[in-house]
């Protein structure tokens, strides 16, 4: 298996779970030019990120090209406990995607 594009850290403290994740992705806006050829670099960015706690959706994010390269995402939610599963899944404008699960610590 290729190395996953997602890194997840999820921590529970006093009933609140903090999830931090990093996704490796070029996030090309489609407005940047290749300096040598002068041609536009085609757009390639993540459009949708879904975070699930066990089987329930916690966060559904829609992104544009304005999100930085190798995006970082952090969010908090209540009602999670240690050992629960967090799943992060993304899809980009080319239809590619990846998902990864991690346990809450």
């Amino acid at each position: 298996m290729a190395k996953s594009s997602i890194k997840i850290r999820a921590k529970e403290r006093q009933g609140v779970v903090t999830v931090k994740c990093l996704i490796s992705h070029p996030m090309e806006t489609g407005m940047r030019k290749n300096k040598k050829t002068g041609k536009l670099i085609p757009a390639h960015f993540i459009q949708n990120v879904v975070a699930r706690h066990n089987d329930k959706d916690v966060l559904d994010a829609q992104w544009g090209g304005g999100v930085s390269k190798n995006p970082y995402l952090a969010f908090k939610f209540s009602g999670g406990s240690k050992g629960d599963t967090i799943t992060i899944a993304w899809t980009d404008n080319k239809g590619q995607g990846d998902s990864k699960s991690a346990k809450i610590k």
């Binding site: 966060l59 090209g65 304005g66 999100v67 930085s68 995006p71 952090a74 969010f75 939610f77 209540s78």
Partner: peptide
């Protein structure tokens, strides 16, 4: 101008971080 939109689920708290251009 629009960079990101976060739809929060039931338990999610209004606290999100991201890096933008």
């Amino acid at each position: 101008p629009l960079i990101a939109l976060f739809n929060l689920g039931q338990n999610a708290m209004a606290d999100v971080s991201a890096r933008i251009k």
